[in-house]
Structure formats: structure tokens, C-alpha cells
Design a protein around this nucleic acid. Structure first.
Length: 261
DNA sequence: ATGTCGACGAATCGTCGA
């Protein structure tokens, strides 16, 4: 059983790259972020022909999330029910598999622009709303995966230039407080359950040859609940699609679960 | 301040968001 998350930065531009990636990496579930298209433009047929069911929650120009799955899903929920939001940022569903039923939440967390801005305040309110809802979700769905573009680094190891980026967006104590609070709920950062290459990142700025110089951040995460942790076999970042022509600025993150329960 | 993408409206570039 494999699950993955990928911020594609426009599904219109990246559709063929997603299909190509899936043909090489036939994961059971793929969460997509930043679709940047309305629901009527979602390419459900293309994914169906590739062997994937889809649930999607689109928005014009910005945001937009989807869940692709080998088998049909149930209990689809869009956004955080208890948090009023104009933006399409969360899609959740229950996936049945030989690894047992899993509640999958795919999320595109707010960017936040910079500390002190309205967008940063929105990010803080959104994170607070997420945590309140997540606590209840964990109680009703103990076998849970929360994956997506968090737009937050855990610590210096996730930052190419921790000194230069101190207190900058993605790296502030306020953002990390919320991330750590999720860890305190019992969630695990699956990537750090394993030894990883030094300077592993999931996003690189398009500017200044960010990828070539490995000037990146690890802001795409897969958090797993305590009940699922024993089944986690591996978590990796696949940099291959970042080497494509016209790549997304993000790389996919892949989680492997054992079927053993 | 800058760099580079992608979307959008009203152009064939300027603006915004990331």
C-alpha cells in the first residue's frame, strides 16, 4: 500500500506529468494540491483511463485539492466543517485497502506570505481550526494520514539556509507551534521515522536555480496517527519530476505501508 | 529589491500570489 502527495502548481499544466509519474509509480492514493482549476475543468476521465478514481474540490486560479485512488472512496468531506473558509484547501475520504481502512486527509495549507500580514493571521486561524477538527477526526478515525503541502518546516534540518530564513515565512515559531501541537496529538512525521539523506527538501524556488543549487525547504509532509505507525515501512521524496521540463516547484512525497496489521 | 513561474484581464503586458 502506497500513498503520496504532490503539489502540482496547476493541474492544467502538469496533467501529463502526473499521468507519467503514476505510470511509473502506481501508488494506491495520490493527494494533489494547487489544482488551480474549477470543478468543471477537472480531468476525471484522464485519471479514470489511468485506473484511478478521483474526488476533487477545485477553485478558480488558486488552491484546489484532489484525492486519486485505485479503489472508490467513501465519506468524502471538503474543507474543515467547523471552519468557515472561502478557499478549497482540504479533501478527506476513507480508503479501503489490504492494509485496512484508512482515513486520508489531503491538504493545501495557507502560505501565509510573511509574519505580520493579514495572510499570516489567516494561516494561524486556519491552523487552529484544523487542529480542533483533527482532534475529533482522530477520535472517530484512529487510522489516519494527514498529507499535503503544509507550508511549514519542522526545524533547521528542513531548511537550506536556517540562518538566513530565521523567523521568515515557513520557519517561524508561530507556525511550528501548530505543527508541533499536531505531533503532541500523537501524529508522527513519517519522513523522520527513517534515516534520510542530508539536505532533503520537497520544494525549491523557481528562481535563482533553486533546484540545481538545492536551495529548498521540506514543507510537504505525511503525518500518520499512532494506530498506523507500526505499518509505516518507508517515506521518501521523489525528486525525479522536479527535473522535468516545466516542473512543479514541489516534489512528490511517498509513504509505504505494510499490509500487516 | 531581486529572481521565476502560473493565472487572469484585457493585452500582446501588468498585476497578484507563491
Amino acid at each position: 500500500m502506497k500513498l503520496a502527495t504532490w503539489n502540482v502548481n496547476s493541474l492544467t499544466v502538469r496533467l501529463q506529468q502526473v499521468l507519467d509519474w503514476l505510470s511509473v509509480n502506481p501508488v494506491d492514493v495520490l493527494a494533489l494540491q494547487e489544482l488551480k482549476l474549477t470543478d468543471d475543468k477537472f480531468p476525471a476521465d484522464a485519471f479514470m483511463q489511468a485506473g484511478y478514481h478521483a474526488q476533487w474540490f477545485g477553485q478558480k486560479t488558486y488552491n484546489g485539492v484532489a484525492l486519486l485512488s485505485r479503489t472508490p472512496v467513501t465519506e468524502v468531506v471538503k474543507n474543515i466543517p467547523s471552519f468557515q473558509d472561502d478557499m478549497a484547501r482540504i479533501i478527506s475520504a476513507t480508503v479501503a485497502s489490504d492494509a485496512g481502512d484508512i482515513r486520508v486527509i489531503g491538504g493545501y495549507f495557507p502560505n501565509g506570505q510573511a509574519p505580520g500580514t493579514d495572510k499570516f493571521e489567516y494561516k494561524m486561524a486556519w491552523l487552529k481550526g484544523l487542529r480542533g477538527w483533527l482532534k475529533a477526526e482522530l477520535a472517530t478515525h484512529p487510522r489516519l494520514v494527514l498529507m499535503g503541502d503544509y507550508n511549514i518546516t519542522f526545524d533547521d534540518a528542513d531548511v537550506w539556509d536556517p540562518v538566513g530564513m530565521r523567523d521568515q515565512i515557513h520557519c517561524t515559531d508561530e507556525e511550528r507551534y501548530h505543527l508541533n501541537a499536531m505531533i503532541s496529538m500523537g501524529l508522527h512525521d513519517s519522513f523522520r521515522l527513517f534515516e534520510q539523506p542530508q539536505k532533503s527538501y520537497s520544494w525549491w524556488d523557481y528562481r535563482d536555480f533553486g533546484f540545481r543549487r538545492n536551495h529548498g525547504l521540506r514543507i510537504d509532509h505525511i503525518l500518520v496517527s499512532p494506530a498506523l505507525k507500526p505499518q509505516v515501512k518507508a517515506c521518501t521524496i521523489d525528486k525525479t519530476p522536479r527535473k522535468n521540463e516545466r516542473p512543479s516547484d514541489h516534489a512528490p512525497v511517498v509513504l509505504e505501508l505494510s499490509t500487516q496489521r
